[in-house]
Design a protein around this nucleic acid. Structure first.
Ligand SMILES: [Mn+2]
Ligand SMILES: [Mn+2]
Ligand SMILES: [Zn+2]
Ligand SMILES: [Zn+2]
Lengths: 146, 146
DNA sequence: TTTGTAACTGGAAATCTTTTTCATCTTTTA
DNA sequence: TAAAAGATGAAAAAGATTTCCAGTTACAAA
């Protein structure tokens, strides 16, 4: 009664990218399909060993990295383990330049309708949020592309 | 010409919370005021030692934890170092239950006006975003408070 | 099928990060 | 001043991640 779904929908994605469907990868995918919560590599490995005892932690790291790159899984940030900080004043969010790393703040606003929408759709009572925008800062936009 | 600002605006906050304004803490604050980018404890320590050679890494960890709790600094997630993953299908975001850890997806929508606003206000060219909502899942809402 | 080969695996070791401990020092309070 | 509470930083311990490498496996082609 814990099996929420199978990893089958992902198989096509893997084939499309020419990635081999191995036992360790199947195992990791099944773990992620069964457990709808943020899981660390360690946890995925422990859970995965129930069905594939030989599963190696290193392989789990590699599989997670691959699946994220292919857009099959996504990182969960709410756990509060990101060790990267920047000054902040007031109720704002960050825009982060993907080229030079510069961080700029902008006021948090206009999200209330979204929260209402999420509440109506998922039944969750919304209490907080993480919002971060990435892009190119004015300087990096000027100085060439990319 | 690197000194963007002083940490003075934060001093009142610290006094208000009855927290001592020590040399290590001043140093960490000045580093954060001078460098507007995501900094790891290691980086803060290295930069801080320019003005306070004896600064200890452990103290930096403690100071960052404290300042975040007081809302003076905030985590930057865009670096992609969060080792926590969850299955994801399509262009969605996560709602994460802060009580049981359950992760649910909701479709991404309604953020374009915000991106336009950010672009107008900061001059950044927006290319991506991280959005994550925290709250209580339906089950946890039912079963008691907190 | 069988085979060849690039892709993939997992243990061990190396490396990097974060937390714990503890003796000392500093500030505040009585 | 004396006592208590708060902070600090070095060292050690614990944890997390990456690198190496000798084998194994999936899969396309023969
Ligand atoms: Mn994060
Ligand atoms: Mn979105
Ligand atoms: Zn930039
Ligand atoms: Zn819950």
């Amino acid at each position: 009664m814990k099996k929420i779904s199978s990893y089958k929908p992902w198989v096509e994605t893997l084939k499309a990218f020419g990635v081999r469907l191995t036992l360790p990868r199947k195992t990791v995918l099944q773990v992620l399909a069964d457990n709808r919560e943020g899981l660390t590599p360690e946890e995925v490995c422990r859970l995965g060993r129930a069905s594939h005892p030989g599963l190696g932690l290193v392989t789990v790291y590699r599989a997670l990295e691959l699946f994220e790159k292919l857009g099959m899984i996504r990182r969960v940030h709410s756990g509060g383990h990101c060790q990267s900080y920047s000054a902040s004043f007031g109720d704002t969010h960050f825009v982060v330049c993907t080229r030079c790393g510069r961080v700029t703040e902008f006021p948090c606003c206009g999200l209330l309708p979204l929260f209402a929408h999420v509440r109506a759709r998922t039944g969750y009572e919304v209490t907080g949020h993480i919002l971060e925008i990435t892009g190119l800062c004015p300087d990096c936009v000027k100085s060439g592309e990319n």
